[in-house]
Simulated assay, not measured.
Amino acid sequence: MEILLTNDDGIYAPGLAAMERQLQKLGNVTVVAPATEQSGVGHSITFLSPLVCKEAYDGDRHRGYAVEGSPADCVKIGVFEFCKKRPDLIVSGINGGLNAGINVLYSGTVAAAIEGAFFGITSVAVSLEWDENPQFDVAALKGREIIEKILAQKGEPAQLFNLNFPTAALRKKSIVQVVPMGLARYGEHFIKRKDPRGRDYYWSTGDPKPEHGSEETDLSALEKGDITLTPLHFNLTESAYLDRMKSWDLQIAD
């Protein structure tokens, strides 16, 4: 199996290394990752300037390719230039911090997986709840086992998945919940301060926490300490409303 591995925390991130070690048990892994951290860049790509890439090494071992660009850039150039064969699987992570709820829209980790899905390649974004002493090796082991199960059961065509590990799930026998992405709003509060020159600046607090409804989502399941797996898609068309709009009078005079 040919596997392309990337992330948004940078090519030297410990979560990437842990995931690489586990994925090597499944096949040949090509690492193409940002040269520096690209958290929160979403699905940005580089097209107004050259995309600088260089080979990265871990001692004498060829580690992969460091790209002066976004996670989506890494997948795009990885598929076209650096993978010896077209990948069968693309994995993005392990990210240091959860990517759940509406945060998937901002996440460079998830964007890399979406880019992989653009190519018709099954792609999985993997994230671990932030912790001062993250157990990336444990999360990578569990992640690899879940990815194996996904590949064995997903069928055709290629699919896109978002996999999240709460810290609590690494310390116990954990449940994997297949749940939708939570849509609750949060992170609306800012602290206002002044810089040394007297200018106002604002720092997002991430509060308030989202309120959960009656339906279980990735946000509510993660809060319980469960692992979450969410199938995603990138078609943003509102199909039901599209049909309704076809009857609108939108013609304008010549």
Rank of each mutant, 00 (worst) to 15 (best):
100 A>R: 06
121 I>K: 05
89 L>W: 08
57 Y>V: 13
169 A>N: 06
254 D>Y: 02
193 R>V: 11
104 V>G: 03
87 P>D: 04
46 T>M: 00
38 Q>M: 15
137 D>W: 08
93 G>R: 00
54 K>P: 08
129 E>L: 11
143 G>F: 14
199 R>K: 13
67 V>F: 11
114 I>L: 02
8 D>A: 07
159 Q>Y: 13
169 A>C: 11
218 D>V: 05
50 P>Q: 02
152 A>G: 08
188 E>D: 10
54 K>I: 09
107 S>H: 11
71 P>D: 05
109 T>I: 09
161 F>Q: 08
189 H>V: 09
78 G>E: 14
24 Q>L: 12
205 T>H: 13
146 I>K: 03
73 D>H: 04
225 G>W: 06
19 M>L: 10
206 G>P: 09
72 A>M: 07
226 D>I: 04
154 K>M: 09
129 E>N: 10
122 T>W: 02
133 N>M: 03
242 L>S: 12
118 F>K: 04
88 D>Q: 07
224 K>N: 00
200 D>I: 08
58 D>S: 13
168 A>P: 03
166 P>N: 04
233 H>G: 03
172 K>F: 11
83 C>G: 13
103 N>K: 10
119 F>P: 00
122 T>M: 00
14 P>E: 05
161 F>K: 13
221 A>I: 01
108 G>E: 08
101 G>F: 09
164 N>Q: 10
28 N>T: 10
186 Y>K: 03
185 R>F: 05
44 S>G: 09
127 S>W: 10
37 E>L: 08
207 D>C: 00
39 S>Q: 13
104 V>F: 07
11 I>Q: 05
45 I>K: 02
40 G>T: 02
246 K>I: 09
60 D>S: 15
231 P>V: 11
